[in-house]
Write a protein that binds this DNA or RNA. Structure first.
Length: 585
RNA sequence: GGUCUCGUAGCUCAGUUGGAUAGAGCAACAGCCUUCUAAGCUGUGGGUCGCAGGUUCGAAUCCUGCCGGGAUCACCA
C-alpha cells in the first residue's frame, strides 16, 4: 500500500489491495491483483503492475523478483526468507497457537443424546464435530467449556421402561451380557413393535388411523407412566434411575472410544421446568400474548415466521420454553461470550426462533448464540431410519472399523514384530482414525453420504494415509539418530533448496491462517483438508529425495529439519481434529 | 404452498470468501519395491461447475427466476 502511495501519491482503499497466494502453475509466491488499482494509477494493467513490481523489487529486501501476466503481479519471495521462516517455527513448539489478548469464554453444547437408545452414526458426526471445534477454539486462545445436555425424560423414555416391565424378565446389562444402552434400545424397539400390532388390530376393527394411534392401550400406559414420573412415584422413579444409569454407562464407553469428553453434563430432568418463568415475565411485559384457551404464544409474523407456542393451555412447557430457560441459565452459570449449539440442521428453524425470542425478551447476548448446524448422514441406500432398522450403530461401526484395520494391517504384514498390546492399540488408532477423518473432512453444513465399505478404504485422502506419513517421519528421525546424524535445531548455513522443499515450507507457512479460518467457520474440515495436503506434499518430496544419504550430509540435515517440522504440524493438526497418530505402524 | 439449504469428473469430496488454464482421492488403464515403511510414488483418460439471465475488467463463488434433492413450518423432544 505504501508502495502505491509513493509511486502514485495517493493512498488506495484498503480493499483495493488484493494479495493472494500465487497459483501453482505460475512463477511467484504472492500475487497482487492490480485491477482494483487502475482507478488510481490511470494506466493500463500491465504497466501498473510493472511499475509496482519494479519498485518493490528495488525497495523491499525479501522480494527477489517479479513477473507480470495480464493484470496479475506475481512477486517472488527470496529463498532466504523461507529458510529463516523454517528456522523460526522450528524454534517455536507452539507455532500456530494464537496468544489472544482478548480471549473469549465460549460454551459449546454437543452430543445431547436421548437415553432410550444407543448412539448411531448421526451422533458420531455430532460428537466429532463438537469435540474438534472445541479443541480448535482452545488453540485459538479461547476458554472453552464443553457441555452435554442429556435428554433423560419424556414419553420416549417411558416407552423403554414400560417394555422392560412387561417383557424384560428382570434382565439387566450383566445378565444380558450387553451394553446398557443397547439393552434399553432393544426394549424401545420392542415397544414400537407391540404398539404397531395394537394399532393394526384397532385399524382392522374399523377405527381410523389417527384415533388408533392415540387409543392403543400401550401408548396410554406409557402416558400414565409419564404422569407418575412427574408425580415422583417412587417405583417409577427408581426404575427410571436404574435404566438411565445403564444407558449412561454405555454412553461413557462409546464416548471414551470416540475420544470425546465434557466439562459438564446437564440432565433435562433437572432443567425441563426452566423457562416458564421467563415466558410469564415476557407475557407481563407484553412481548408474548395469551389466547382464549390460556395458552401463551409469541407472534413472529413480523419476522416472516409463524406464531410459536410457548406454554400449553394447562400451563406446561414445550421444547422451546425449556431451551429459553437453559440458554438463560447457561449464560448465568458461565457468563460466556458465546454459546455454540452443535445440533443437526433439522433444527435450523428452532434456533432461528430461539434467537429471536431471546432478543425479544431483551437479552443482549441473544446474538452470541450460534447454531453449528450439520447435515444428515445418509447411507448409499438412503436415509437412516431407526424404525426400519437401517441405522448404523456407533459401537458396531467402531468395532467394524477396528477389525478392518486389523485385517488390512495383517495382510500387508504391518503388524509383524509388535507385542499384542501394542498391536491392539495401533489398529484401534488406525480404525478410528479412518472413521473420524472420513466424517470430519466434509464441510459440516453439507449432508454427506456414508458408505461403510468406502470409508474403510485406507488409501488416498484418508486418516490412515496421514497417520502413515507421520509414522514414517518418526521412523526417519529414529533411524537418523541411530546413524548418529544429529537433528539440527536450526540451519545456519544457506542450503540450496529444491522446489519441492520450498513448496512444503510455503504450505507450512499457511498453518496459522488455516487455524483461524477453521475457528471462524467452526469447520474442522478446513484443517482436515490442509493436513492431507501437507501429508501428500511430504510423501511426494520424500519419494523424490533420499534424506539419509551419507554423501550429502548437509543437505540431509536440512531435509531432516523440514521433516521434523512437517511431523509436528501433522501431529498438532490431527490433535485438533481429535484423531490420534501412532508413533509407529 | 412459505422459509432455509444443497447441486462441481462415473462415485466421495476440496475449491483460500469475486481472480489467471477447475482440484484431490476412489474406480479404470500403464509404469515404479537394492535408498528410510509400496497404507507409497509417477503417468493417461475423465467437466456445459443443475439450467437461463443479470451485476463487472473478471462469476463455480454475488443477485433474480426456473429445475432437481433434502430439511422445516407440531399443544414431539
Amino acid at each position: 500500500m505504501d508502495a502505491v502511495q509513493k509511486i502514485y501519491e495517493q493512498l488506495p482503499d484498503e480493499k483495493a489491495i488484493q494479495i493472494q497466494r500465487t497459483r501453482k502453475d505460475f512463477k511467484g509466491d504472492f500475487t497482487l491483483v492490480v485491477f482494483p488499482l487502475l482507478r488510481i494509477t490511470k494506466k493500463p494493467p500491465e504497466q501498473t503492475a510493472n511499475e509496482i513490481g519494479e519498485f518493490l523489487k528495488r525497495e523491499v529486501e525479501e522480494i527477489s523478483d517479479y513477473n507480470v501476466i495480464k493484470g496479475f503481479l506475481n512477486l517472488s519471495v527470496d529463498n532466504n526468507f523461507w529458510i529463516s521462516f523454517l528456522n523460526t517455527i522450528v524454534g517455536d513448539p507452539d507455532f500456530g497457537l494464537q496468544k489472544r489478548t482478548n480471549p473469549k469464554k465460549i460454551l459449546i453444547e454437543y452430543s445431547s443424546p436421548n437415553t432410550n437408545k444407543p448412539l448411531h452414526l448421526g451422533h458420531i458426526r455430532n460428537n466429532l464435530l463438537g469435540y474438534s471445534v472445541a479443541t480448535i477454539l482452545e488453540t485459538q486462545g479461547h476458554e472453552v467449556v464443553k457441555v452435554n445436555l442429556v435428554n433423560d425424560r419424556g414419553i420416549h423414555i417411558c416407552k423403554s421402561m414400560l417394555a422392560w416391565q412387561k417383557w424384560g424378565n428382570n434382565l439387566d446389562p450383566d445378565k444380558a451380557d450387553k451394553k446398557g444402552d443397547h439393552l434399553v434400545g432393544d426394549f424401545y424397539v420392542k415397544f414400537d413393535q407391540e404398539y404397531k400390532k395394537e394399532v393394526n388390530t384397532l385399524l382392522q376393527q374399523g377405527m381410523n388411523e389417527e384415533d388408533a394411534k392415540k387409543k392403543a392401550p400401550l401408548i396410554a400406559e406409557a402416558q400414565e407412566m409419564l404422569r407418575k414420573w412427574e408425580a415422583r412415584d417412587p417405583e417409577v422413579i427408581e426404575l427410571w434411575k436404574e435404566m438411565n444409569r445403564w444407558v449412561l454407562d454405555g454412553f461413557d464407553i462409546t464416548y471414551k472410544n470416540l475420544g470425546v469428553d465434557f466439562d459438564k453434563i446437564y440432565f433435562e430432568s433437572d432443567t425441563y421446568k426452566l423457562g416458564k418463568q421467563l415466558v410469564l415475565q415476557g407475557l407481563d411485559e407484553g412481548v408474548f400474548y395469551k389466547k382464549e384457551d390460556g395458552s401463551v404464544w409469541a407472534d413472529l409474523t413480523d419476522e416472516g415466521l409463524d406464531e410459536k407456542l410457548l406454554l400449553r393451555a394447562d400451563g406446561t412447557s414445550v421444547y422451546m420454553t425449556q431451551d429459553l430457560g437453559t440458554a438463560n441459565q447457561r449464560h448465568d452459570d458461565f457468563n460466556a461470550n458465546e454459546l455454540i449449539y452443535v445440533v443437526g440442521n433439522e433444527q435450523n428453524y428452532h434456533f432461528q426462533v430461539l434467537r429471536i425470542l431471546l432478543s425479544k425478551l431483551g437479552f443482549s447476548w441473544a446474538e452470541q448464540i450460534h447454531h453449528l448446524s450439520y447435515g444428515m448422514v445418509e447411507l448409499p441406500e438412503g436415509k437412516m431410519k431407526s424404525r426400519e432398522g437401517t441405522v448404523v450403530d456407533a459401537d458396531d461401526l467402531i468395532e467394524e472399523m477396528v477389525q478392518t484395520a486389523e485385517s488390512m494391517s495383517k495382510e500387508l504384514g504391518k503388524l509383524d514384530g509388535f507385542e499384542e498390546q501394542e498391536k491392539n492399540r495401533i489398529i484401534r488408532t488406525i480404525g478410528l482414525g479412518a472413521l473420524k477423518y472420513f466424517i470430519l473432512k466434509v464441510d459440516p453444513k453439507k449432508s454427506m453420504t456414508f458408505n461403510p465399505k468406502e470409508s474403510i478404504d485406507f488409501n488416498g485422502n484418508t486418516g490412515p494415509f496421514i497417520q502413515y506419513s507421520y509414522t514414517r517421519i518418526q521412523s526417519l528421525i529414529k533411524k537418523a539418530k541411530d546413524k548418529g546424524l544429529k537433528i539440527p535445531e536450526k540451519t545456519d548455513q544457506k542450503p540450496k533448496i529444491s522446489s519441492k522443499e520450498l513448496q512444503l515450507i510455503k504450505i507450512l507457512h499457511q498453518y496459522p491462517e488455516i487455524l483461524t479460518e477453521a475457528a471462524a467457520n467452526y469447520s474442522p474440515a478446513v484443517i482436515a483438508n490442509y493436513i492431507y495436503e501437507v501429508a501428500k506434499e511430504y510423501n511426494q518430496f520424500y519419494h523424490d529425495h533420499p534424506i539419509l544419504s551419507e554423501e550429502k550430509r548437509s543437505v540431509s540435515q536440512f531435509r531432516l529439519l523440514l521433516s521434523v517440522q512437517v511431523g509436528r504440524i501433522i501431529r498438532s493438526g490431527m490433535k485438533l481434529l481429535g484423531i490420534d497418530v501412532p508413533e509407529r505402524m
